[in-house]
């Protein structure tokens, strides 16, 4: 199945800065991946409803009871930078 991909759009959604060579290569590779996944459609029978879940389960809940949180220092250990007990991250608005 031929798939049209706007590689610029996909790259922008993923916040990836691709070189011209990468764009050209990925434009060829991505349709192959999608075509491969689309093969599932060939074996899907009328009597099998579409689903996003392979395991036939539903209603997995937890009780509304508190668990331990991470100690503050451990929680902040993965932060790129910390300021005022908060995660410091780059400015949010993209300026171009």
């Amino acid at each position: 199945m031929p798939v049209e991909i706007d590689i610029e759009h996909v790259a922008r959604l993923a916040r990836l800065a691709l070189t011209g060579e990468e764009k050209e290569r990925l434009s060829r590779q991505l349709p192959d991946i999608l075509s491969h996944a689309a093969k599932v459609g060939e074996v899907a029978a009328e009597d099998v409803p579409p689903t996003a879940y392979a395991v036939p389960r539903s209603n997995v809940f937890r009780a509304d009871e508190p668990d331990e949180c991470l100690p503050h220092d451990a929680a902040m250990a993965g932060a790129p930078e910390v300021e005022d007990h908060r995660f410091r991250v780059p400015r949010i608005v993209e300026m171009e």
Partner: peptide, 22 residues
Amino acid sequence: TATKMFCGCPNEFGAPPNTHVC
């Protein structure tokens, strides 16, 4: 609720920053 939507961290307004996280 007493806890968050998908984990057991307390659902409480006004705690010191990043203390109700897991």
